[in-house]
């Protein structure tokens, strides 16, 4: 049994990143756009872990922790904005009508 190679993990990371980019570009639902951004952040985290495995270094997992806190903060702020838009009486989650937000 051979070990997984970091190059294949990098390939998977690029596939995930392209899929997330497709979601951000094509979807109009704010919630789905946030989920696609989460996919892209996870692809970046996978690239860091793969690089750490390639160089036998712990720095990759340190950077993974940074990405984890970044994703948590981003999800909190983005979901708060979505809830605020919804509470302002907007019936849809269309990203194109976000310019009506005040304050």
């Amino acid at each position: 049994m051979s070990t997984p190679s970091p190059t294949e993990a990098l390939l998977l990371a690029s596939i995930l990143f392209a899929t997330g980019l497709l979601g951000v570009l094509a979807r109009r639902n704010l919630l789905l756009m946030l989920m696609s951004i989460e996919i892209m952040l996870n692809a970046a985290a996978l690239a860091f872990i793969a690089a750490g495995a390639r160089w036998h270094a712990a720095q990759g997992q340190v950077m993974f922790l940074m990405i984890l806190s970044l994703a948590a903060a981003e999800a909190a702020v983005g979901l708060a904005i979505i809830l605020r838009l919804h509470a302002a009486g907007r019936p849809t989650l269309d990203a194109d009508t976000g310019n009506r937000l005040k304050g």
Binding site: Q61, A75, L79
Partner: peptide, 22 residues
């Protein structure tokens, strides 16, 4: 890939906390 700490954090924080937020 040999990163068990990151795997556990991925389950606990991402699949646990962030997804519960969603």
């Amino acid at each position: 890939l040999g990163a068990p700490f990151a795997a556990m954090l991925e389950i606990i924080i991402y699949a646990g906390a962030v997804m519960v937020l969603f």
